[in-house]
Design a protein around this nucleic acid. Structure first.
Lengths: 233, 233
DNA sequence: ACCTGAACACCGTTCAAGT
DNA sequence: ACCTGAACACCGTTCAAGT
């Protein structure tokens, strides 16, 4: 037990962009967006803040790289072998992103920012492609590819982001339903004249199965796509 | 011309939460998310940074208040008089939010954050309500209210946020289409084997009418709603 | 009650100096 | 080529002191 008090081998491992991005993801997962700091990152990597700048241009690039890494992992192992229907593939991709955002709640904000600030970077095309290929396979006419894919992607990221909040605000110990309960109760106390709908819906969100709710939204958009483009079978 | 070199009357105007929020919105509009600083805000209000804390608890509350103010203005003058169909009302609300995000690009990120971090605050119920009441009027059964409304809201905020980027990256002078052109060109240079869909779609986004594109997405989701719930006329 | 402005702890980033 | 660590400019926030 006393044989290797120093973890020198570990510490001597040279810095690399890969290790930095990995540590950044771990830090984001553990402490949220505000937890990613060059100083905290440096400490975790047993080095100084300046060293990181040799491998990474700045914080924004680091955030992009962390986002890219997590999304790539979530979308890895695409359609490939199985002869699933496009609808099933879309559900699978959607759930993959849903789960990734659930595991890494910071991803929601980051993806939204990256898709609007720099849609030419690899994350946006990657997501677009994974959904878009299935939209095409659905038989949607080319003129509607972008509309249909956009509707799906925006819904996936928005709904997943909202869902990710459920586990984030209270600690991981707190029951998942507790957050929804808080929201539900707050909504029920709104003015009945101004917020009849929100009050009525307050009940529904309590104790709902998040994934089922999410998939119902996907189904609704898929129904819209096939309704508008009846060529689809 | 020399009669009132000092704008004392203006400067003596007492600080108030309202004035602070107004200045915050102006600062966000002019300089983006990074431009909102207590020091910059204090300068604009001809006071010190400490004074702001008498009226506002912290920066997060200030951002919430700024978001709230802009959204309230965008949704003001709801359905009221006109006997428009629910579909038309939904389109109107959607365009109102679309334009608000277009005018205040920082709103997209802020709304996404607020809807997931604290959905009990007034912005989320307000948006939910304005769309949800029309979904209800559409004849959707109660069990599907939340799904249908969620799909619409997430699409609206996501698509509007992406659109807002068009005017943001390049200066206001730069032609609006120039940004899409850059994106389009970048997508066309992707690997044809890995990104066939994104490459094919690169053409479509160039020179498209943003609002028409946006409304096509709304129409698609509305079609999904009426397809799943045929009771609707 | 409301405002001032210096001070504190912290941050991203740079850069001369080391190896 | 890669790393160190002090330094710079800046930030959110606090708080004793003023009016």
């Amino acid at each position: 037990m006393a044989t290797r008090t120093r973890r020198s081998e570990r510490r001597e491992e040279p810095l690399s962009r890969e290790r930095i991005v990995g540590a950044a993801v771990a830090l984001l997962d553990a402490a949220g967006e505000g937890g990613l700091t060059f100083r905290a990152l440096a400490e975790r990597l047993a080095t100084g803040p300046g060293a990181i700048y040799w491998h990474v241009a700045n914080k924004s690039e680091l955030l992009d790289a962390a986002t890219e890494a997590v999304v790539a992992a979530a979308l890895a192992g695409g359609p490939a072998e199985s002869a699933d229907s496009p609808q099933e593939e879309i559900r699978a991709v959607a759930l993959g992103l849903f789960d990734a955002i659930d595991d890494h709640p910071w991803l929601a904000t980051q993806l939204a920012a990256q898709m609007s600030h720099s849609p030419w970077q690899s994350v946006t095309p990657r997501i677009l492609e994974s959904i878009g290929q299935q939209v095409r396979a659905l038989g949607v006419p080319e003129g509607s590819w972008f509309t249909a894919t956009s509707a799906l992607v925006h819904y996936i990221l928005g709904a997943a982001g909202q869902n990710a909040a459920n586990g984030r605000v209270l600690g991981p110990d707190a029951d998942r339903g507790q957050f929804l309960d808080t929201v539900s109760r707050a909504w029920e106390e709104l003015d009945p004249d101004d917020y009849p709908f929100t009050r009525a819906v307050a009940d529904q969100i309590r104790g709902h199965d998040d994934r089922a709710q999410f998939l119902a939204g996907i189904a609704l958009i898929l129904a819209g796509i096939t309704a508008v483009h009846p060529l689809t079978t």
